[in-house]
């Protein structure tokens, strides 16, 4: 079964073809990052206009790469929630139109669940649910108990800033480029992660929720304090702050994941979302799981960030469970 996936929840316009849920036939991601570089963030009007222009060419190229024609598509999957409402609508309207035109089923997919599914595209049947799933991105930070490809029980989420957002805001504060995550990771390599004892926000004991707003503010105080004493900060001082901040974030993410695992002893941990590209997080999680019979799964970078392959793949499992969407289905921000 060939499913065409469409993803336009935020920055990326993406279309992909996946066969039987697991075989990646094509995955086209036309990123708007260059557009946003000028602004240091996402500007919704620009994002929406760019989605309109990019979505059909992305579909065409996805079909071309998969060496099929439109009529061979058996179903259309689209991410309908969550995201920027204007951006979501463009993907959804395209998907509805194609499904109606081709008279094939429409599958509405949760973007966050699709990020968890991304690892399944990489590992296939060797990834077996249930798992503890940690989703970390620019807009989201959540822990789930994933019972199957389609069923995810939310265990905890951020109460304020998402991890990726904290990375972006701290990067901006330190005068680094957008997007902030990769920049902090790069600069942190030259820094000492123990240089600054930033707070580890764990919230009340046993909580699986997250809070990164106070940590962001702690970085601000530290940075401004140093500036007052020294004027301009050296490259090494910036690197130390970046490394110490990253370490504080990773500590919290790793420890909360272990706590979730303690409560729900499953055999796998899935990491997903843009921040899952962060190698410090990957390595620290791998280390933490070294001596326990729990396997760590994470997708390659291209499937960590927003992409339509994960949408098409999860769409197949929604199809198997007969969760077909009607043409009236709505996007939910």
């Amino acid at each position: 079964m060939l499913i065409l996936g469409i993803e336009t929840t935020c920055d990326e316009t993406s279309a992909a073809v996946v066969e039987d849920g697991l075989i990646l036939r094509s995955n086209i991601v036309s990123t708007q990052e260059r557009l946003h570089l000028r602004f240091g963030g996402v500007v919704p009007e620009i994002a929406c206009r760019a989605h309109v222009e990019a979505v059909l060419p992305a579909v065409d190229r996805a079909l071309e790469d998969a060496r099929i024609i439109l009529r061979e598509i058996d179903a259309i999957a689209v991410a309908t929630t969550p995201g920027l409402i204007g951006a979501l609508l463009i993907g959804l309207t395209s998907a509805k139109t194609l499904a109606w035109l081709l008279k094939v089923p429409l599958l509405a997919v949760n973007h966050l669940h699709a990020h968890i599914f991304a690892s399944k595209l990489e590992f296939g049947h060797s990834l077996q649910f249930p798992t503890i799933s940690l989703l970390v991105s620019g807009g989201h930070t959540s822990l789930y108990l994933s019972q199957s490809e389609t069923q995810h029980l939310l265990l905890g989420a951020t109460l304020d800033d998402a991890v990726g957002e904290a990375f972006d805001k701290v990067a901006k504060l330190l005068g680094l480029a957008y997007p902030g995550g990769p920049e902090i990771e790069r600069i942190a390599q030259e820094g000492d992660p123990t240089a600054v004892p930033f707070p580890r926000p764990y919230l009340e004991p046993g909580s699986l929720d997250f809070s990164f707003s106070g940590l962001k503010t702690a970085v601000l105080y530290h940075y401004q304090g140093l500036q007052k004493i020294k004027g301009r900060l050296s490259k090494k001082e910036i690197a130390d702050i970046a490394a110490s901040f990253q370490e504080a974030v990773v500590d919290v993410l790793v420890n909360k994941t272990l706590l979730a695992l303690e409560r729900h002893p499953v055999k796998g941990v899935v990491l997903g979302g843009g921040v899952a590209c962060n190698s410090r997080l990957r390595n620290r999680l791998a280390q933490a799981l070294e001596n326990v019979p729990v396997r760590l799964y994470y997708p390659p970078p291209v499937l960590c960030t927003d992409n339509a392959a994960m949408v098409a793949g999860l769409g197949y499992y929604e199809y198997l469970e007969k969760n077909l969407a009607s043409l009236e289905v709505e996007a939910v921000a």
Binding site: C10, F39, G40, G41, V42, V43, P44, P82, G83, L84, I85, G138, G139, H140, T158, L159, D160, D161, A162, E165, K169, S213, A333
Partner: peptide, 26 residues
């Protein structure tokens, strides 16, 4: 939560709340 990512969040309350965050707007 921080609405920096979504830009507009809506909450149900005695009166509906529209929470805008212009951090990424220009």
């Amino acid at each position: 939560r921080s609405a920096s990512f979504l830009i507009i969040a809506e909450y149900k309350a005695r009166i509906p709340i529209y929470h805008f965050d212009a951090y990424r707007l220009d």
